[in-house]
Amino acid sequence: MDTKPFEPKIVAFMCNWCTYGAADLAGVSRLPYPQNIRPIRVMCSATISPHHILRAFQSGADGVFIGGCHIGDCHYIKGNYMTIKRVAFMEDLLNWFGLEGRLHLEWISSAEAQKFVDVIRRFTEKIRALGPNPIPALLKTPKAIWNGADDEGHCANVA
């Protein structure tokens, strides 16, 4: 039996101008934080489309974290206006769909290394409590999903 504690995989999209700076600062300040995040540097949090978030979950990420500049501080003036709209929408959609609490957005400026560390720590703990992303497991057990033909007579194409 696998007795290792569950280590979540978290994809972290971080804005080049703020959150990535905070992560850098956390590094040079030698602040420890969980190693569960897989950082991806993006030029602006607004470049993260719902495609990327969904792709991460499709590929088995247990959580997706997005870090951007505070409102008003965006390097591209209004980029994070779009980010919050998208994330608010995606949170509602994923909650309804059955992936609750696995997406998180936080504004972290490049000076807030301590905030970055705290947020990553708390988010990792939250995902650890939620458990692994259920999608890959559900897709690996087609029989649990398929009971045969549906009421319209369409048959399952179980591999």
């Binding site: 909650n95 309804w96 769909f97 059955g98 259920p134 559900l138 999903i145 398929w146």
Partner: peptide, 23 residues
């Protein structure tokens, strides 16, 4: 109503949608 399915637990909702999409 799309929110009627909220009565189901999250994992069940997910499983059901995956069933639909896999068709």
């Amino acid at each position: 109503d799309p929110d009627d399915c909220r009565v189901l637990p999250a994992e069940e909702r997910l499983r059901r949608w995956l069933y639909e999409f896999q068709k």
